[in-house]
């Protein structure tokens, strides 16, 4: 009797075990499947985006717009602007077409930065319709910027290609750390301008693509989360260089702004700041 009972029992356990394992009505399995459908891999990009947006992005932008102006201001006070005699020979550097698209890009970019900040600090700057309007202006400015940036990119790309001496320029920070008028290694554009150029055009392209996703909400939500992350990091970098660019044009080199208005630069300035420029 005992001999039959034991194998019988084992068989019974095995079969019930099998029945439970096979039943499709296992609640835990069902909930697991639902979870996968609803949340997907939230832990991957969803959580990353949530944490970055909660803890980093607004602070990063705040840091950029507070510390960089302070550094630039300190530079202005401690070292001061460079100025060159503008009554000597002048060299035609920027033709009318380039100047027009430059200002188109400049204006739309400024709007992009401003409206971007309205969204980032929406609580302070623009809740409700203000924020919604800012987002619309952001979109329109992005389109205008793209229209201007493409010809600008093609027009300047040759002169903006990196050269070996750009490293030297970066090493001495373009000679901006002292007031000495020693020629620095730079062609028509120095390494700083090149960095700004590539960030604004290629980076601008990435901003346009990710921005398009953020605006149009494509089907895949992970693409959306990644776009938001890239858009914010790249945006912070662009704002940083934008501030430096404005400072350089408005204050660091006297008369630099004028060159983008009437197209001429003083030869005396070119000899020091852009000695490798063959005009």
């Amino acid at each position: 009797m005992k001999k039959i009972l034991l194998p019988g029992l084992i068989l019974f356990w095995a079969m019930t075990g099998l029945a439970i394992a096979q039943t499709p009505e296992n609640l835990t399995t069902a909930y697991r499947q639902f979870n996968a459908l609803f949340t997907g891999e939230w832990q991957q990009y969803g959580e990353l985006f949530t944490n970055l947006q909660k803890n980093l992005f607004p602070r990063l932008f705040l840091l950029v717009i507070t510390t960089i102006p302070v550094f630039l201001f300190l530079h202005y006070i401690a070292i001061g602007p460079m100025s060159f005699p503008h009554d000597g020979k002048r060299v035609y550097c920027y033709n009318l077409f380039v100047r027009i698209i430059h200002w188109m890009a400049a204006l739309s970019f400024s709007l992009l930065v401003l409206t971007g900040f309205v969204v980032i600090f929406a609580k302070l700057l623009g809740p409700g319709y203000l924020g919604i309007t800012a987002r619309t202006v952001h979109l329109v400015s992005a389109v205008i910027f793209s229209i201007a940036a493409i010809p600008l990119f093609l027009f300047w790309i040759k002169e903006m290609l990196p050269a070996l001496y750009d490293l030297q320029w970066l090493m001495i920070m373009g000679g901006y750390l002292n007031k000495e008028k020693k020629p620095v290694p730079a062609g028509k554009f120095n390494a700083g301008q090149k960095m700004w150029f590539w960030l604004a055009t290629v980076g601008g392209g990435a901003m346009a693509v990710t921005g398009y996703f953020l605006y149009s909400h494509p089907g895949n939500i992970d693409i959306l989360r990644l776009s938001a992350i890239i858009h914010n990091f790249l945006g912070a970098a662009m704002v940083a260089l934008f501030l430096v660019h404005i400072y350089m044009a408005l204050a660091a080199t006297k008369g630099s702004l004028q060159s983008m208005i009437h197209g001429y630069k003083a030869e005396a300035e070119l000899k020091i700041l852009h000695p490798k420029f063959k005009y």
């Binding site: 609803f38 949340t39 939230w42 969803g46 985006f49 949530t50 947006q53 969204v119 929406a122 623009g126 809740p127 409700g128 203000l130 924020g131 919604i132 800012a134 987002r135 619309t136 979109l139 953020l214 605006y215 909400h217 939500i221 959306l224 989360r225 938001a228």
Partner: peptide
Amino acid sequence: IGCGYCFMACPFGAPQFPSGQVFGA
């Protein structure tokens, strides 16, 4: 302001956005 961040953060796709504003915003 309809930025859509809540939608990206939500694990369940709960926040929804009506369209029909300017430029389909």
